[in-house]
């Protein structure tokens, strides 16, 4: 009897915490009121592999649909998967049943989204951060992160020679902490290194992959190792692991560069800039295209410097700026050259 009682309690515990994890996902099911064809067109489901609150990628996509709600008058629901692979397909299907437009964020969905897209031919899928061609109702958005990282590398290379800034030493070493050694991150690295070399071929770029996107302690250790080897600025491309990079920067009296969203606000004294992927903007754009019927489904849309899909961001007004006007000028110049194809940025994919 006692054993049964405890098993029951365990089940209740497990189920309740699972529900807490994907609370929003279940709301989608409740709203099954019959909708007319037009009203249906106004709904968007946003499916993310992790959870909102990463102060980065997923939050940015949420801002995009939020903006679409205000400006384009859509309704939306967010489906979080909390990095649980078992939920990927379920949440995709839930979102597909809820809305005719489904925005999908996270490389993890690569297989699942292709399967589900075939099951729901009437649903328009917007899949962010990868390239898939040939599925009629699946549009992908690819960020040219190596272009943005080229600017980041250029900025870091200029800053590491600016010895007038406190904490910057003579050596020309800069670093990068990557989440995992995967194609997207390698693409960041390729651009970052090329950008640094463009400013000064003598600048040394050292990279450590923490092997995890959710372990800030490991991020801190990795960054500390880079700082101890003379790096003045570390580019953090590692999601929540990156929070540890910023701590390491503070502790060592050195600097860091954020990623995906403008992360300067986390600690404006050590985070000098962020390489922003305008995930939200690109999702917003695509929803607008669908509404205006100008979308070419099945196509890959590229968002680079030219489309303002990636760019360097320096926080809000009032924050202490480390990049001088001269540097900004130089960066604008480089950006122009990349857009005009005068500089070719290598890829790491």
């Amino acid at each position: 009897m006692k054993k049964r009682l405890s098993l029951l309690l365990v089940l209740v515990l497990a189920v309740s915490s699972l529900l807490a994890g994907c609370g929003k996902g279940n709301e989608g099911k409740e709203e099954t009121k019959p909708a007319t064809e037009e009203a249906k067109e106004q709904k968007v489901g946003l499916v993310v592999a992790g959870g909102l609150g990463d102060r980065s990628f997923y939050d940015s996509s949420n801002e995009g649909v939020e903006k679409a709600k205000e400006d384009l008058g859509i309704e939306y629901k967010v489906y979080e998967c909390r990095n649980d692979p078992q939920l990927y397909k379920d949440q995709l299907i839930q979102a597909s049943e809820y809305a005719p437009i489904v925005a999908v964020v996270g490389l993890e969905f690569y297989d699942a989204v292709q399967e589900v897209a075939k099951e729901f031919p009437n649903v328009n899928y917007i899949y962010v951060d990868t390239e898939i061609e040939g599925i009629d109702n699946l549009t992908t958005i690819s960020y040219v992160e190596n272009e943005g990282s080229f600017l980041t590398g250029a900025l870091a290379a200029m800053l590491t020679q600016e010895t007038s800034i406190e904490g910057i030493d003579e050596g020309k070493v800069i670093g990068m902490v990557g989440g995992k050694d995967i194609p997207v991150i390698r693409n960041f690295k390729a651009g970052y290194e090329a950008g640094a070399k463009y400013i000064d071929p003598e600048v040394k770029v050292e990279t450590i992959y923490a092997g995890d996107f959710e372990d800030p302690a490991k991020g801190k250790e990795s960054a500390l190792a880079l700082y101890s080897r003379g790096a003045d600025i570390v580019y953090s491309v590692a999601g929540k692991t990156g929070e540890g990079v910023f701590e390491a920067a503070k502790e060592s009296g050195k600097y860091a560069i954020g990623v995906d969203t403008d992360q300067r606000y986390i600690n404006p004294d050590v985070i000098v800039a962020s390489m922003v992927k305008r995930v939200g903007m690109s999702i917003y754009d695509t929803i607008e295209r669908i509404q205006k019927d100008t979308l070419e489904p099945g196509k890959v849309y590229y968002y680079g410097l030219e489309e303002n899909g990636v760019e360097l961001s320096f926080g809000e007004p009032g924050m202490k700026q480390f990049a001088t006007d001269e540097m900004i000028e130089k960066l604008t110049d480089i950006k122009k050259k990349i857009v005009n194809n005068e500089i070719e940025v290598p890829t790491g994919k």
Binding site: P216, K240, E243
Partner: peptide, 12 residues
């Protein structure tokens, strides 16, 4: 002690 922040599943 080691960090001064909390992130989800930081016990990793």
């Amino acid at each position: 002690g080691y960090l001064t922040l909390f992130t989800e599943n930081m016990s990793a």
